[in-house]
Design a protein around this nucleic acid. Structure first.
Lengths: 211, 211
DNA sequence: TATAGATTCACCAGTTCTGGGGATAAAACG
DNA sequence: CGTTTTATCCCCAGAACTGGTGAATCTATA
């Protein structure tokens, strides 16, 4: 019997999973937590075969917990389970060593199977996610780069204007560029920062003190 | 002869204005500065009739300088001159006591006339701006409110999700709302924060420590 | 109980942004 | 001197967002 622990803040969903795993003869849900603030300690205590980790939780996020767990117990297999499908979180999760990326919309059977796979050294990606993984591998050279490729001078300027919430048109005016010139720089910035929207770029830039 | 000083970081534009004012027999450009970091001190020294103030400058912004000048020398008439037409800056400028709001695309003659008007206790708004002023008065109740109307609990939640760069669809999932429900909250948030885009909302929320 | 505010949803018409092509010219580099 | 980066621009299609209007519930409060 395969032992797992669950980090999930949504009460309904947590209880639904608990009930479902009660009926499973392959996976035993040892314990579940509504936040991941003490995840590492709890991993130490319960030594699960697989960890099921939500992303959005009060306190530290599932992605941060993932990182800490992998630093402390790299042999522990963590599978992310979330409701969102954005590439940024996926990218971060992969970088931080997630063994799987399941969606809450997946059926319980799929989830159970995924857990077994992960335990056996395999991986699992929900179909919608799998496509994005491929795209990430095709379009991003993240294996050889640091957290992000450095921006060129001009890109940095554009980023600063982006972070003033100026419209493309106004950035163009301010930098004596065409709309398409701005657009082009922004596409490159997003690619380098592994984001896909202005808001993500701003948040990332603030976080990384790029601005 | 009416004495003005100019704060403007763009060298070309500054020199163009300098040359133009040299030929004017109504307005005398006493001095120009490429940033407004010591604006108050400089006002004290030169005691201009009117101050022409750019917004985007290295160091403190024209809008902040405007505020400081109005605190220290409320009788000094400051006219904003900028290339951007967004309502947010306009709103802030008005709140902080700008007497005019000119665009760099205005002709020099207009600018000169505007300066004279402002000196005589009038105001000046570039046509494109004037329409927005009206809209602000019609749609915003800013005269009686603090910097922004407090957000409701639910709006606050939406704002936090907004600031994670989640898509409307995903915010809806996370909050068990419909897309249109999210949309509705966001419209109210923007209105209360006097912004008109997600990026502005995030920046404002960070600034005001709402998140 | 009437009124106001908070919450939620719908429809619609734009506008803005995003991602995919591809292209050219200049600059940097080996 | 080629090759690679950088900077710039163009077109297109589709996704996402914004703003306006209107409306139904529910709750708290005068």
């Amino acid at each position: 019997m395969l032992r797992i622990i669950l980090f999930e803040d949504n009460k309904n969903y947590r209880e639904a999973l608990t009930d479902a795993f009660d009926l499973s003869d392959r996976v035993f849900l040892t314990k579940s937590f509504k936040h991941a603030n003490n995840a590492v300690k709890e991993i130490k205590q319960y030594r699960p075969d697989v960890v099921l980790m939500d992303i959005e939780m009060p306190g530290i996020s599932g992605l941060d917990a993932l990182m800490k767990i992998n630093e402390a117990y790299p042999e522990t297999k963590v599978m992310i389970q979330t409701q969102f499908e954005d590439e940024h979180r996926l990218f971060v999760a992969l970088c931080r060593g997630a063994w799987g990326y399941a969606l809450k919309s997946d059926s319980f059977d799929k989830l159970e199977e995924a857990i077994v796979e992960v335990h056996q050294g395999g991986g699992y990606f929900s179909p919608a996610i799998a496509g994005k993984v491929r795209r990430l591998f095709m379009t991003e050279q993240f294996t050889k780069t640091p957290l992000y490729t450095p921006l060129t001078e001009r890109e940095q300027e554009v980023l600063e204007h982006l972070a003033k919430a100026l419209k493309y048109k106004d950035i163009a005016k301010a930098m004596f560029l065409s709309y398409e010139g701005v657009h082009s720089h922004i596409k490159n910035i997003y690619s380098k920062l592994h984001v896909s929207s202005r808001s993500e770029a701003i948040l990332k830039a603030i976080e990384a003190k790029l601005i």
